[in-house]
Structures are given as C-alpha cells and as structure tokens.
Amino acid sequence: MNVFRLAGDMTHLLSIIVLLLKINATRSCRGISLKTQELYAVVFVCRYLDLFTNFISLYNTVMKIIFLVSTFTIIYWMRFHKVIRVTYDREQDTFRYQFLVLPCLVLALLLNNEFTAMEVLWTFSIYLEAVAILPQLVLLQRTNNIDNLTGNYVFLLGSYRALYILNWVYRFMTEKHYRQYLVWISGIVQTIIYIDFFYYYIKSWRNNEKLSLPA
C-alpha cells in the first residue's frame, strides 16, 4: 500500500468519524442527506460482498466493516433515534434515488470487466459512489446555515477520492498489470462533482467566513 492510498483511506475514515461526532455530539443531523447515506450503504454492501468470499488483509476487512457499521448507524439514527430523527431536513432532502441508481445499474450491466453477479455489483458500486454525494450537495445548497462539521465532512469525503487518483497514478507507474479504466474515470467524475464545493469551502476558510453555497 502506498502513501496516497493510505492518506485516502484515512481521509475517508476521518470524514465518517466527523459525521458520527457531529450527529452524536449535537444530537442533530441538520444539513445531512439521508439519501446520500443510504446510497453509500448500497455502495458498501454491493462492493464489500467479497468479505464473504475473499480475504485480502486484516486492514482491508476491518476498514470494510467500519464503513458498513458506521453508515448503517448513521441511517439508524436519522430514521429512528427519537431525538435525532426530528432534526432531519426531510422536506429539503428530495433528490430521487432512481435518477442515480437506475443509470448506474444499466451502465454496470453494459460496462464491466466480467459479466458475473459479483463483478457487476462491484462495478455498480463504483459508478454509484461517483454520484452518491449529489443529494448531499443539493441539500447543502438549500441550507442557509452550513455548520463547520458538515462542511468538513463533505470536504474530507471529496478529498478521499482525489487522493485515490494519486494512488492510481502511482500504481499505474509501479505495478505492471494495473489497468482500471472504469474505476479511474468514475473516480475522476466523482472528484469533479466536488470542485464547486471545494472552491467555496477553501474561499470561506481563507476569508474566515461561514461556508455558504450560492443557489
């Protein structure tokens, strides 16, 4: 494992810790999109099916379990926790799942490395992850008052895939048979989706102002 990959994984892990902390400490999930969290749950379940079939490393297994458990915990809190669920911006979080899920499913059926159930679901998870942040970004645009932790959460989540791109470049140069065009294109799309957010996040940080996204 190279330094970019590790930095990417740690950024991803940190984003989830920030989100868990925010919700748990403030007893509020204001500004957080349940749709995005549920899409991530689908992404992790589809991608990590190999937990049952293929052991890669202890690190790999532990991280996968952390991502699954933390995402389902957040969904449970937002849906069922008696204090937290009333803070969910239900009326604002209106993005439709099917607009993201269906195209990704069709694309995974058409464009994959191998036409098997496991491989198609894995590819589907790669495509879906690329766009799963969209409901969250739409919700942030509608939220006038974005708190710091929510801003940091989205920033860390966006940074993680950008670091993965560096990891892919590194692996491409150092590993003889590392060719993952579908993943690379998806990762680039995923990072591009954040560029607007990154711009306003860095601007607000430099000017020491509260983050807000123009509608």
Binding site: N54, I56, S57, N113, H177, R179, Q180, V183
Partner: peptide, 10 residues
C-alpha cells in the same frame, strides 16, 4: 501474471 483487479481497494 493476471491484470490487477483493483479489488484490494476500499
């Protein structure tokens, strides 16, 4: 040697 599947990533 086979092509790396990338499935060792998260």
């Amino acid at each position: 040697e086979e092509e790396s599947s990338g499935h060792d990533e998260l």
